[in-house]
Design a protein around this nucleic acid. Structure first.
Lengths: 326, 326
DNA sequence: TATTATGGTGAAAGCGATTTCAACGACAGG
DNA sequence: CCTGTCGTTGAAATCGCTTTCACCATAATA
């Protein structure tokens, strides 16, 4: 492996000069030229490990996600990856498989390991999380949850759910049911349900608490909850779900119970899943700019790292949403 | 930041002893105990950067994928991540956004940067790719394509497509069309089409070359190709697609042209997408163990790295498949 | 002419681990 | 008593880069 010293010798300069050449310090034109040629000749590439040890920066960003194979998450990571690549960083991906304590584990791992910053695609934020985030030695940006005192990029789930509820209340005749997710997930659990309830109430069609079920983000859980709902309350005519994935499950359940194609106008979701939209022609749902949230969060993080002072810095950013098919 | 020397001083030993303690070298029981306590007391964690510089190993694996937000890829990465986590490695993810030259770029980047090995979720393998893989300084395993002389984990797309074609030929009455992808993607493009054609032929119902279209892996491209097919050849009664995603697009096209719900028994795909299956009740498709391929490839790579000699080493591994809903 | 900038330069000091190496005490065998 | 072996040990040499620092020309200013 050719090292900096070799290049320096070949070019007849000191390695300090080579380093300066590489990092844009004082260097005369002719030496720069000689160094450039020596580098080309030898095919030298600098060891990022030595560099990392010396500078303390690895140009690595840790990204913690709850589940890699989910459309929303993969769109977010696509956005993160875009920015990272453009700005000369790389992504260290950690998948927690929906286990919130593995988030903590990785938060810990990443600090003592080689990352310059962290993007956490958050689900549940416990006190332990808050503490871990607080005491994190590298900058960290959250996506998907709004946490006081932490930098975050999120969507206003309450407001979106409110609008969806209000819009649906008018269009649906008959009873509306709701399949949510755990309220420990503040955004997708608590905010969406509360917002939806408030929206329905505002439109004069409050949600019957007996018609609320809990799913677990999966298609099957949506299916199961819907089947149960349909047999417990056969007069339900619409099932709103906290995610498009669960909505797909509910759709299948309705189709099974009431005949194929019936479900399509009887469920709503969150997330504007492309598959779902194509296959159903579009159920009522909320479109979030997932890719954008990845982009924004990463830019925010990298700005902080690269010391772009500007107006920005680590802060909180609420992104817009869009009601679809209502 | 507490470093090894601090721990050593506190424990009254040399840092060499601490290092040996950490790495399992000669150390007496009482010193080991003292070191252990000193570490606990100080909360010492060793700098992976210094370690990487000294040992030349970073415990990082580069993973190159064509597109992060696709179900197959995210299942593969889920598998990769599982094994990596279990075996003490971390994943450096690179997303090429379907640009094969960015694969080369990353292959290059990863070699001179800090990875111990590479998993390449491959699409098109050009000669340049072959050369890059050949000359790669770290071990590399391919997923999804069979390349002579390289370690790879793949599925037999030809055989699977053949079986699907043969099975469908009997069940479908009327003309069958095919929407494929670029043949530069040997597995998903060339092999699937060839196998499918051969399967139909074997069942005495050969594919009309005029009914073949080319998509680009996206839902929209499947939709577009199907629309075009349906108007160019209105007597087509079945559209086989090279991916489930394109099949979803074709489904929408058929529904639009011939009425809702019509498409469901008139398309087939590859990949056994969960959404598609739930929403349609299941179109004919091929189930691949994507997660398994990630797991197997990663184990293979890590075995090679960790010097597990065994029967294994870098080799090629063909995984099975399963016809669904035929 | 005597100063002070100013653009360039290389020697050398780390960054924080791992690993070689020589050495040491103790103890067994000859 | 001498020698060899065994289990341990710490000093010191790297790993490959960045960065300070002192220093040197040369040009600009007083």
């Amino acid at each position: 492996m050719v090292k900096m010293k070799d290049v320096a010798e070949l070019a007849g300069v000191s390695s300090a000069a080579v380093s300066r050449y590489l990092n844009g310090g004082y260097i005369s034109a002719d030496k720069a030229e000689r160094i450039k040629q020596a580098i080309e000749l030898t095919g030298y590439v600098r060891s990022s490990q030595a560099r990392a040890l010396r500078t303390g920066s690895t140009k690595l960003i840790g990204v913690i996600v709850p589940k890699i194979n989910s459309e929303s998450v993969s769109r977010i990571t696509a956005g993160i990856g875009q920015v990272l690549g453009r700005r000369g960083y790389q992504m260290l991906l950690a998948n927690t498989d929906n286990a919130p304590d593995r988030e903590l584990e990785y938060l810990d791992l990443f600090q003592n390991h080689p990352v310059d910053g962290i993007v956490l695609v958050a689900t549940m934020i416990t006190d332990e999380h808050r503490r871990a985030i607080e005491s994190c030695r590298v900058p960290i940006v959250l996506i998907g949850q709004h946490v006081e005192g932490a930098a975050c990029v999120y969507h206003d789930d309450y407001e979106a759910a409110f609008e969806l509820g209000r819009a649906l209340a008018g269009r649906v005749d008959g009873k509306i049911a709701y399949i949510g997710v755990t309220e420990e997930d503040r955004a997708a659990g608590y905010d969406r349900r509360r917002g939806f309830e408030a929206g329905l109430r505002a439109a004069g069609n409050p949600l019957d608490a007996a018609l609320i079920r809990l799913g677990s983000f999966t298609l099957d859980s949506g299916y199961g909850a819907a089947r149960e709902l349909l047999s417990a309350a056969p007069d339900v005519s619409f099932i709103a779900c906290a995610t498009d994935t669960m909505a797909a499950g509910a759709l299948r359940a309705i189709d099974e119970v009431r005949g194929m194609g019936e479900g399509i106008h009887r469920v709503s979701g969150f997330g504007d899943n492309a598959f779902l939209s194509a296959l159903t022609g579009g159920i009522p749902t909320v479109h979030y700019g997932y890719l954008t949230s990845g982009v924004e969060a990463t830019n925010m993080l990298l700005d902080a790292l690269d010391g772009v002072e500007g107006e920005g810095g680590l802060r909180t950013l609420k992104l817009g949403h869009q009601l679809m098919n209502v």
